[in-house]
Write a protein that binds this DNA or RNA. Structure first.
Lengths: 154, 154
DNA sequence: TGACAATAGTTGTTATAAGGAATATCGTTG
DNA sequence: CAACGATATTCCTTATAACAACTATTGTCA
């Protein structure tokens, strides 16, 4: 475990501003992610498992595996195994559709909902702890820039 | 493979601005990372391997395993196996120090340097492709906000 | 209607992060 | 100087992303 802030090297003189922004994003993501993961650890949940449960909470009647994949931040998530683990813990249940036997439906269980509910407050608090010091204006600005960054060249 | 932009859900009404910023960072990182990984694929390098080689290029006489770990963005990287794979490809060489037998020294090979050199231009181009549309001002702003975001409360 | 293309999910595999345990080596202390 | 704490690395294990191959099912077309 290392103190990230202290050993952080300065960007190399040859780095382009674009590369520097990319690097800073990586570093900031690391800090946020690490802290967030600590909070989820209380419920023995990984960030990815948490996100799946959150997605499923949004649709209590369930959605297809493929749709879960569509809503994940990453583009080729290993949904099957992810759901295996969550189902094993009875946080999620799965069933195959009758109309289209290719499709597997996944639904959050009451247990899953309860677990999420227990995390609502700590998650809110952690986000504030991590980013609250930026204030509303800077947060908005950051959010807008991040969105803009994803827009194709145009 | 999905079109990320299209299926991107709007933030839930209940999300705090801090959470939204976190989420946007994740999404933007995903886009950048994915594109970047495609470029590195030309040399059969993962992002992490690339970063290690870059670190080692900065110190041609070599650095210790632990120091590599200190300079990584992530805080508990599996340096040993990372270097195993790079050494297997003759991109890196390792030796144990004589003064302190605990310490393993890692050094980039001429092959490793050549490989990196081949990537310098595509990497620069990709960063520009990904973020150039932001322009110098917004890039600076984004970089500063990301750094600020990492500062502790207070 | 049958052949084949497209779709949805599963399985295998590799690289990686991360936490813990284990091993070897050095530094400190009484 | 010996014991023990600290340090550096390696090894084990789990979860995950990602890519590819595979299997089963549905949709399309001639």
């Amino acid at each position: 475990m290392k103190p990230l802030v202290q050993t952080e090297p300065k960007p190399k003189p040859g780095s382009s501003p674009e590369e520097v922004a990319h690097l800073e994003m990586m570093r900031t993501m690391e800090v946020l992610s690490h802290r967030f993961a600590q909070v989820l650890k209380a419920e023995d949940l990984s960030e990815t498992q948490y996100n799946v449960l959150r997605i499923l909470r949004g649709d209590p009647e369930g959605i297809s595996c493929g749709e879960i994949g569509n809503r994940m931040v990453t583009r080729d998530s290993d949904i099957t195994r992810l759901l295996d683990r969550l189902e094993k813990r009875s946080l999620v249940s799965r069933s195959r559709e009758s109309k289209d036997r290719r499709t597997v439906w996944a639904r959050i269980t009451p247990e899953g909902l309860k677990l999420l509910a227990r995390l609502d407050k700590p998650v809110l608090a952690t986000h504030f702890e991590l980013l609250g010091h930026l204030g509303a204006k800077r947060l908005k600005l950051l959010t807008d820039l991040l969105r803009l960054a994803r827009q194709p060249h145009g």
